[in-house]
Structures are given as C-alpha cells and as structure tokens.
Design a protein around this nucleic acid. Sequence first.
DNA 1: CTCTCATTCAAACGTCCGTTTGAACTATGC
DNA 2: GCATAGTTCAAACGGACGTTTGAATGAGAG
Lengths: 222, 222
Amino acid sequence: MPARAVAGGKENSVETPPVESTRERLLNIAEQRFGEGGYEGTSLRAITVAAAANIAAVNYHFGSKEALLRAAVARAMAPVNTERRRRLDQLEAAGQPTAEQLIRAFIEPGLDLVLRRGERGAIVARFIGRVAFDPSRRIRELYAAEADPVEARYLAALQQALPRAAPESVAFGYVNMLGLLALHQSQALSRAPGTEDVDDASRLAENLIAFLVAAFDRGLRA
Amino acid sequence: MPARAVAGGKENSVETPPVESTRERLLNIAEQRFGEGGYEGTSLRAITVAAAANIAAVNYHFGSKEALLRAAVARAMAPVNTERRRRLDQLEAAGQPTAEQLIRAFIEPGLDLVLRRGERGAIVARFIGRVAFDPSRRIRELYAAEADPVEARYLAALQQALPRAAPESVAFGYVNMLGLLALHQSQALSRAPGTEDVDDASRLAENLIAFLVAAFDRGLRA
DNA sequence: CTCTCATTCAAACGTCCGTTTGAACTATGC
DNA sequence: GCATAGTTCAAACGGACGTTTGAATGAGAG
C-alpha cells in the first residue's frame, strides 16, 4: 500500500505486466473499496492511497467522488447489460420465452458471468450489489439509471410469460428477483466471510434460479 | 472519562408521559434518520438538531454514535423478537409446524406488527431493514447479534419441516427470506416513494409469504 | 436555605472529509 | 532549442465530523 511507482510515471513491472493508467487503477480500487464499505464509508483518500495515486487525481480524471462512482458503475454494468440484452434478443427471436428462461437470462449475467472470472469478478459483483441497495436514494438511483433500460424489457417479457398472474404480482416478483440477486452479489447474505469460492458460483446461480422459478410459477397472486 | 454510569431505568413510567425524555427523543430520531440515510450517512448533529437536543447529549446518554445505534436496534428489535418467540413457542406446542406456518410466524412480526402502527411503525421497519444490510460489516453484525438467537430457532424448525430438502438448501432459502424481508422493510424495493400506505402492509405480507412458501416448497434442492 | 447530583449547554478539541490550487513534470511537435 | 498540452504533485482550502470539556441549570432531599 505505501509507495509503488513514485519516481517515474511509466515505470511498472512490479505488479502487473501491462501498465494500468491512473484512471484504470482508480476505477479498480474504487470498485473494491466502495464494495467493501459503501459509498459514504469509503474516503477518496483511502482509494487514492491504495491506487498509488495523488488525491487530486480523482477530481482531475472524473470531477468528483460521485462522478468516480458513476464511472465505476457504468464500467461494471456495461458487460452485464450487454449480455442480458443479447440473451433476451435471442430468446425473443425464438418465440415466446418461458419464465424460467427469462429468469435464467437475467440472473446468470449477474452472477455467473461476473463471478466466473476469479477475484476481480467477485469484486465487481459485490460492488454492483452494494450500489444497487445503498442506503442513499441518490446512489440507488444512480445505479437504476444504468440498469433500468434493459431491466424494463425483462419485466415486460415476464408479464407476457406469466399471463395468469396479475401485472402487479409479476412486478412484485420482479423486484424480489432484483433484490435477491443484488444481495447475493454483495455477499451480504453469506455471513461467514470466505465461505464461497469460485466453484460455488454456478451452484449459487442454479439454486437462486430454481428458488425464483418456483416462486414465480406458484407464488404469485392471480 | 466523565460520569455516565447512571441510566435510571426504574423510575420511568411505562407509558409515554406528556413529554418525551431527551433519551427517548434521540432514539426516535435516530431510528428515523439512520433508516433514511444509513449509519455513515447520518451525522450526530443532524440527529441532535432534529431531536432538539444538545450535541453532547448523545455521548452523555449513550457514550458514542455506535452505542446510540446499538441502543436503537435493541429497542426496535425487542417487540419483534418477543412476538416471533411467542409464535414459535405456540406452533411447536401444537405439534410439527408446516413451512408456511413458520414463514408466516417469522414474516408477520417483521412486516405486519411493525407496519400496522402507522407512521412510527413504518419508520421502525425501515430502520431495521437498513441496519440489517448496512454496507459496513460491523453494523450488520451489530444487528445480527440482536436477532440471531430467535432466528436460529426458525432455521432449525424449517429444516425439520422440510425433511426432503437438503439442510444447506433450507439455509439458502432461509437467508433469502431474511434478505427479502429486510429489503421490503427498508422500502428499498419500492422505487416510487409514498407508493405504499398502511392498507398495503398486510397485502405485502401476504404476497411475500405466498412467494416464499412456493419457493421453499418447490424451489429447494433435495 | 444548602447541598447534591443528574442533566443540559455553548464552545472547543483534533481529525478527517471532498475539493482546489498552482507549480512541476512528461511527452510530443516544431 | 522552444512551445504545448496532458498529467502528477505537495500543500492547503473551508467545512463537517465524533468527541470532550467545564460551567450552568434544575429539581429533590435534608
């Protein structure tokens, strides 16, 4: 943590072979620290020290603490949104998707895709999960702005796939799905730390999908 | 360290006198503000101003900001824990409870009992829900210490009521139940503010119970 | 009345916060 | 060489934070 590359700007090779720019290091550390302590509980100084950057670098590259968070959310959500869109397009092209197909296409990009790439993926997942349910409404809306467009498509598709359930009931199940996914992503539900390893990721996804499918199919009011 | 030893618990009346004590006002406002902005996002100055108390009153009556939170959590959880214990005792005295009975006995004291008494109840519910999933692990454990004893009994009873599901699966469903309850209590799942009124409380409880019962009965792995 | 003691008060403590400044450094094009 | 733009730096800004202090207040007991 103390000093990394101090003298020369382009000197590297101590840690990662490819050079990370200050901007990238800030985003990476921000993901980690915001995911650990939340937005309010994480100071820019803690981030810049860990990223071996000057405190002024945040405002130079992003403009403010909140803008740093916004950039980190956008970068983290981009592949998840892309994958969700892709799978929904594919499902709809093949006809009327089932509820299970929709749930799977929504959950897996959030857990599987993001938990599968080792340490970094788990950090990103926790970051997303934390931001989605931050105590501050302002932060939550910042996340919602990033995720809403594709999420709205899933809600509409689910209501078509479950015509026997009232639209409000489907919306109720839908927010429950969002919440459970975020909670598992944030690892707030795993009380003992370090319990889950990489192999558990796909099992967690399967368990969560089965849990939600049963709830959607039989637990919603008509 | 100054003198702070005396708390004077005995001479207070059971019902609220025409005036609330400074200590009670601090707890009431702390519930509200911590529930709105989270622990880190709420300053003692904001609390003491709203409670019409001096900033030093918190440290006089409680010792620290965290001790104020701890006292507020303990006070808020007490009736919920009591009611959950009462209902579980009652169920177990009548024989082997079903999963639905257990889920209902767990959910309703958290939503129904606490949402039914008007504005105050909704504030308490939101406060509990927020603390249970605060970004800081320290705060979450503070809540867990208050809720764990009775919660553990429900987990054990659920595993007996669902012998066909693996114990890990029941534990998985159980943490999902905890999470969904907390999320609905914290009102983080209701995107539009002010959507829910008092009449919706019992409907919400029924919807959530039906959702969970279906998931427990048919969504858990053997 | 005086004494006592729990409570409240204004004020200040030192620390950390996000942000800003202006100079110094780097790399590239002339 | 000089000029330029992009980036990093130490240092400081004003303000908010949780906490502490010591004196003032008020009610009750002798």
